[in-house]
Design a protein around this nucleic acid. Structure first.
Length: 627
DNA sequence: ATAGGGTTAG
């Protein structure tokens, strides 16, 4: 005979996921008691899980229900699992200690997951100078969970093994992950993959790659771990190469893969690759999730395709802080300060709480567009309206805002009024402002402060040297050169990347290794020839100061962006814009040079440097020579 | 009758 009503107990599994209200749970409890089903372990376990699930935390209720029942691990493990997944994973440890039965491999696994959740939460907190207490306690709990697994004889369980490895990875402790992994006699594929992930996320990509290459089988998760590892350390070209291999190997390309691929494209400005990824996800009918959509917005923004970025942004049904921040920051990077402020206002109206990263983006937008008053208002609102203490970076942005606008006094007063000790970013901003406005004295002052904090900052030395150079103070330039030599400060080598026919070409300062270098050399000569009548003379003020005076002109012509530019003129058909991505700030000479090339060769050139975009057209740049 | 590895913003 079929029951007339659906048995309420069948609702249990879905209730566990749905965070039900207390009255519903009480009714269910009554039903389970009356029908006697609460005595069966599976029903009890499911009921406990629904009590402790997600935000509705009826923990005390669960604690009342459990002791009155014959103790089963099934029910207690359900509690552990729910606690580990819940908003306060630390509670799983107390429950574990209070277990009325010897824990099994499942219990240990849930305990390890709880420690992982704590570690991840601690890592997600803003980096602060000293380790946060959450991190310290996460570490202690991780070690104790691992110890418990070993002590209780569950260290050989494959689920526990992979869990322990990724737990240490979540803590950011690669050494501990390595040590734990070394103890495992026969790690299975999932466990090896976890180790690949741990190494990759910890920045040890080459070690990760060795392990990865040695795997007899690799599924899509292993590929994803490896690809994201490359992206993480900025080796995006290798990431894209590996992605090609992944496809040839027939591994499943999913959301996680594409997010990493898009991030790689964003880093090196590989717009064609990025467009392809966008096309691919559409052709596969993939849903535009928040994560994927955000990665797309970021990719298009960082490739200088703001319109496309905004199109994706507007088409998204759901957005979170990351999405909004990416869009706001995209507008800022592209010098669209007013639009950036407008979007920020929309964000606030939409009820999305901005965070510190958002404010950095807005302040940078103001700084680039010279919107001093607006930036001031934004800075004040951080504390007044949002009740958040500004980060040091926000102070740095303000110094940059005043400094770029030429309001050096305001910048200095601002620094003097800071309630916290200025950090290197603040002095760096002041140093940069001194360079822009040729104030050598102030530059020296800022550099002294900067070096007192961070004595090996290469960018600082380069900035000071450039400040000297712009005021023709060659003695000063060589003094900085000496300082750098003495301290062993190495200048980060500049590179520029350009994408042609879906292939990314990378150029380094003075590099001659490109297969088409002969043609590039000829093109460079032609460029010089055609630029001379336009009044171009190599600007030897800002140069690499490790090069002797008489070599300057020759050396300048080989800055990586010039090589990329020459290659773009050769390899890209007329009428196609040239897109170049560079890892450092573009120097004044290359900026002047590129402006003229855009006019003489009638090309649009879009150059992304360390800080922002430059859209060159008809001999002018979108930054209005202000960067 | 409960478990595992990979994914976004400055």
């Amino acid at each position: 005979m079929r029951p007339l009503l659906r048995d309420p107990a069948t609702l249990l599994p879905s209730l566990a996921a749905a965070a039900p209200h207390l009255h519903l749970l009480r009714a269910l409890h009554a039903h389970l008691l009356v029908s006697g089903r609460l005595a069966t372990p599976s029903h009890l376990a499911a009921f406990v899980a629904s009590l402790v699930s997600s935000s509705h935390h009826h923990l005390d209720y669960a604690r009342l229900v459990l002791p009155g029942r014959p103790a089963t691990l099934l029910a207690h493990n359900a509690l552990l699992r729910a606690l580990a997944r819940g908003p306060r994973p630390g509670l799983a440890f107390a429950a574990f200690r209070g277990l009325p039965l010897p824990p099994d491999n499942y219990s240990l696994n849930f305990l390890v997951r709880a420690a992982t959740a704590l570690a991840a939460a601690a890592a997600a907190e803003r980096p602060v100078p000293v380790p946060v207490p959450a991190e310290v306690s996460a570490r202690l709990l991780a070690v104790s969970a691992h110890g418990a697994a070993v002590r209780l004889g569950h260290a050989a369980d494959p689920h526990v093994q992979s869990g322990v490895v990724s737990m240490y990875a979540a803590l950011g402790d690669v050494a501990a992950a390595r040590a734990a992994f070394a103890e495992i006699a026969c790690p299975d594929l999932v466990c090896v993959t976890a180790m690949v992930g741990a190494l990759a996320a910890g920045g040890e990509v080459d070690a990760a790659r060795d392990l990865f290459d040695g795997m007899p089988l690799r599924d899509h998760v292993a590929w994803n771990a490896m690809i994201s590892g490359y992206v993480h350390v900025g080796r995006s070209r290798e990431a894209l190469r590996l992605f090609d291999e992944m496809q040839r190997a027939g591994a499943a390309v999913g959301e996680a893969t594409l997010v990493s691929v898009l991030s790689a494209c964003a880093q090196i400005g590989a717009l064609d690759h990025g467009k392809w990824a966008h096309w691919y996800m559409r052709s596969q009918g993939m849903r535009l999730s928040i994560t994927l959509g955000t990665a797309l917005v970021d990719m298009y923004s960082k490739c200088g395709a703001v319109a496309a970025a905004m199109e994706v942004f507007e088409s998204m049904g759901e957005r979170n802080v990351y999405t909004w921040t990416s869009a706001v920051s995209g507008l800022a990077m592209n010098g669209m300060g007013l639009e950036c402020l407008e979007l920020f206002e929309r964000m606030e109206n939409a009820g999305i709480q901005p965070n510190g990263v958002t404010f950095v983006a807005v302040l940078r937008g103001c700084s680039m567009a010279g919107l001093v008053e607006e930036g001031q208002a934004c800075f004040d609102s951080i504390k007044k309206k949002h009740g958040v203490d500004p980060w040091l970076e926000h102070y740095g942005c303000m110094v940059d805002l005043y400094g770029r606008a030429g309001r050096l006094d305001d910048a200095i007063n601002f620094i003097n009024d800071m309630p916290v000790e200025p950090h290197e970013g603040v002095w760096g901003a002041l140093l940069n402002a001194s360079r822009i406005h040729n104030n050598v004295e102030l530059g020296k002052y800022a550099l002294d402060k900067l070096l007192a904090i961070e004595s090996e900052n290469d960018a600082a030395h380069v900035l000071l040297s450039n400040t000297y150079a712009e005021s023709q103070n060659w003695k000063g330039v060589s003094r900085v050169r000496g300082m750098m030599k003495n301290k062993g400060v190495k200048k980060v080598p500049g590179w520029s990347a350009i994408e042609v026919d879906g292939k990314v070409h990378e150029f380094f300062v003075g590099g001659k290794s490109h297969p088409r270098y002969k043609e590039i050399e000829m093109m460079l000569a032609e460029m010089s020839r055609r630029l001379k009548p336009e009044g171009y003379a190599a600007n030897t003020k800002e140069v690499l100061f490790d090069i002797e005076e008489e070599e300057k002109e020759g050396a300048i012509s080989l800055h990586s962006e010039k090589l990329a530019l020459a290659f773009g003129l050769i390899a890209l058909p007329e009428g196609v814009e040239i897109r170049i991505v560079k890892n450092l700030r573009v120097c004044r000479d290359c900026h002047d040079y590129t402006k003229l090339v855009s006019k003489v060769f009638d090309r649009e050139i879009i150059m992304r440097d360390r800080n922002r975009f430059h859209h060159f057209k008809d001999g002018k740049c979108s930054c209005k020579d202000y960067w």
